[in-house]
Design a protein around this nucleic acid. Structure first.
Lengths: 205, 205
DNA sequence: ATACCAAGATGACAAATGTCATCATCTATT
DNA sequence: AATAGATGATGACATTTGTCATCTTGGTAT
């Protein structure tokens, strides 16, 4: 009988191990590889020496290479496997980027593990599986931020001063303040910190 | 043969299910109950109708009642069970509070699942199990913040203005600025945001 | 070449934040 | 009663941040 071959990418070792165990218990699933980040996963699949991989199941926020980057690389390299995202965050920006990278499933860690098993079967048969929390249309706002605004906000979030941000981005302090100001107004925030929070919640950072 | 009875508290359903499954696979462990937060766990144990619980394995950051609160309640109620914390965060403040609540184990979700199984056995036999990352002495700084400083910082972290914070805490804006200022200086931060970040990283918020 | 547009920079001003010394109350302690 | 602590308020001042209008510069489409 032909099992569905799965590769896991998840930086939380405890969850990685536990998932590998419970998926392997299913009699038509087989975990071929467990990885701690996107890079490891991509290298394994690219190496060619690997077993065939049908489904890549990956977290988003990981060191070295995120799950979204991994999905994009696999998509662009036309690797014949299907990607399912498994993440804590119901952020519209993440889902949008995932869909743009040809992802077939997007599940939340909040859902029961049976949902995951169902989703794997469904995706393998050519379907898609999106967590219901994310199906609401109104969620889908586009990221209004420019690249510079995004970078500046990311640094502001950690408490860096205008001057420190300017140094890191090789810009004048005035320009940095202009970017942060326009970011705040785009997001209807009262200050840079609230702006950073809003952007982060939407998956735009 | 007498199995070790375990109660799980973890708000991430996927991990909760997966852990329950792999622990139950061990032939001397038995998961008697899975809970989504501390309150459910405490109520179950208090109800009396429950099976005996030897080990409570709990996350920290959960809605309704955190794992630290749960540990404290169990400790103070002199319930004859041993608590193990399983969390993402290697924060000295968390560990300190955990130890003060009579916790017997503190593990990170980053460690392999086998560590968890070993820790449960060890704690059940009367030992303790602390993740090695947390054993370093220098980690153990005491929280230098006062209650008011902590509250103000928590709100500042979300981008609230001095005035908004003042309203929420029923204080004058000047007083709020004083608290935030002293918090920043205690933490060697350049501004309220950096102070909030440092406090958060140490588990003081 | 001309006009145009984007990325940055600048300057000016208002508003918010950071810092510090000082003052007013209210409790405990002795 | 006298003293000391803790909590909070106030005022003054420097610094940082937010906002906007206006330049400069280097492409680029016509």
């Amino acid at each position: 009988m032909n099992k569905i071959n799965i590769l896991l990418a998840e930086d939380q070792t405890m969850l990685l191990n536990a998932l590998a165990t419970i998926l392997d218990l299913e009699d038509n699933l087989h975990v071929v590889q467990s990885c701690a980040n996107g890079k490891q996963a991509f290298d394994y699949i690219q190496s060619g020496e690997s077993e065939r991989v049908d489904i890549v199941l990956t977290d988003i926020e990981m060191p070295d290479m995120t799950g979204l980057e991994l999905a994009k690389q696999l998509f662009e390299s036309k690797v014949p496997c299907k990607t399912i995202i498994l993440t804590t965050f119901a952020r519209s920006g993440y889902l949008r980027r995932a869909m743009d990278s040809g992802v077939k499933g997007y599940l939340l860690k909040d859902s029961p593990s049976q949902d995951l098993i169902d989703a794997i079967q469904k995706v393998h048969q050519g379907g898609t599986a999106i967590a219901p929390e994310l199906m609401v249309e109104s969620w889908m706002e586009k990221d209004p931020l420019s690249d510079k605004e995004r970078h500046a906000l990311r640094l502001a979030k950690d408490g860096l001063s205008t001057e420190d941000i300017a140094k890191k981005l090789f810009l004048s302090t005035g320009t940095v303040r202009n970017y942060l100001s326009s970011a705040s107004s785009k997001l209807n925030a009262k200050n840079r910190i609230e702006a950073a929070r809003i952007a982060h919640q939407n998956g735009w950072l």
